[in-house]
Design a protein around this nucleic acid. Sequence first.
DNA 1: TAGGTCGCTATCCTTTCGTATAGGATCTGC
DNA 2: GCAGATCCTATACGAAAGGATAGCGACCTA
Lengths: 222, 222
Amino acid sequence: MQSVPLARQRQLTVVSQAPRVAGMRVMIADDHDLVREAIASFLQGEGVAEVVTVPNLQDAIRAADEGGSFDLVLLDYNMPGMNGLEGLALMIAANDQRPVAILSGTASRALAEQAIKAGAAGFVPKTMSSRSMVSAVRFMAAGEVYAPFNFMQQADTSSGNLSQRETDVLRGLSEGKSNKEIARDLDLQEVTIKLHVKTLSRKLNAKNRTHAAMIAREMNLI
Amino acid sequence: MQSVPLARQRQLTVVSQAPRVAGMRVMIADDHDLVREAIASFLQGEGVAEVVTVPNLQDAIRAADEGGSFDLVLLDYNMPGMNGLEGLALMIAANDQRPVAILSGTASRALAEQAIKAGAAGFVPKTMSSRSMVSAVRFMAAGEVYAPFNFMQQADTSSGNLSQRETDVLRGLSEGKSNKEIARDLDLQEVTIKLHVKTLSRKLNAKNRTHAAMIAREMNLI
DNA sequence: TAGGTCGCTATCCTTTCGTATAGGATCTGC
DNA sequence: GCAGATCCTATACGAAAGGATAGCGACCTA
């Protein structure tokens, strides 16, 4: 899997040109024992000084609070306490604004973009090999923002053809809201919501609102 | 994580009392490189003779067809080609009815039960440690049916309070079907479906059918 | 056998959805 | 400026969903 650095709208503070693997402290937060063990052992094999592993966000935050900040924190997107990308902000704060990356099994471009927009140091899908993983970790610990190249090249067919409004409506749908509620939230008329539901359902190839919500969930659009 | 053998309604053919790890052939099918590598290296460390890894169902079936059956196949539940538990039956056939287990990150008792009912040799959540994994692999390769103990002890609060019919209706809901369609499929009257939708929505604390479907999806009830 | 639960059906009514059709407002690139 | 796209609004109607209440039969259990 090829990788490419993303500059984006953020100041990149390069800690060192050739990152010192030696004294590096990395935390891996994932509820999957298997994944934790795997990443930890690979990183240790690469000479990373300290690898801390925790199974949930709560422990991750405590570890940073008590043991000091890490050069990089890898946060599983689906993990107790995360609640979507909410946990990311908490972790960044707990890690003294230092790099925190999102690790995810359910990979989608939309999610990667959201994560990076929300301040993540990068996005690491579990479909990556350990070799790629290790180099991604080095880059992120050095202050760069990373996302796998083929992710970002992912066809826009999935989410790109939904307009902003349609995405907003879709979010409401997936929360089980009625058209009226969504209209109130977005400060629009109910008919407008109906129109959006109709068009986004067509775009997603969904039979109705329920189907659209399920498809959106499946495609990680929301 | 504690484990316990499940006898269930199936004939258990014990290949050998103390399974020979030596000549064992195991296939790991998972689209997550990280997970594949991890499991493979742990198994090889345990002396498993041959570990084949593939990233999707198609390749897994081809590997069994061409290279002969395996003592155990580990199938990721969320993997290209699986389509829920449909892929399980295909793999079991391709593996000459020999053990095929389901590997999953999104762990729920309901899914584990379904998988085993559908003929899986066991259910392995990715929250398991490598040590537990290795012993589970041994048991399943020996013809036993395995599922992690704490999974099966999981409170019935999640899915247990839904009746069989309600679960059927819920499945229809999550496929975006109308009440009429669901009624036809289940050979019931539309009003009955409405009733079920109402009661299951109450039980799941959902506002409406869309919400119910999303909650079900979130709880891995379907 | 009586009482309880559970699943299914029925009727009636209100609300919400889904669809169609038509028009207005804004912003874009040419 | 104009064409084209995007977004918003309006009216209207049939279909679907949601809710309340009541009754029936099967099954289990005391």
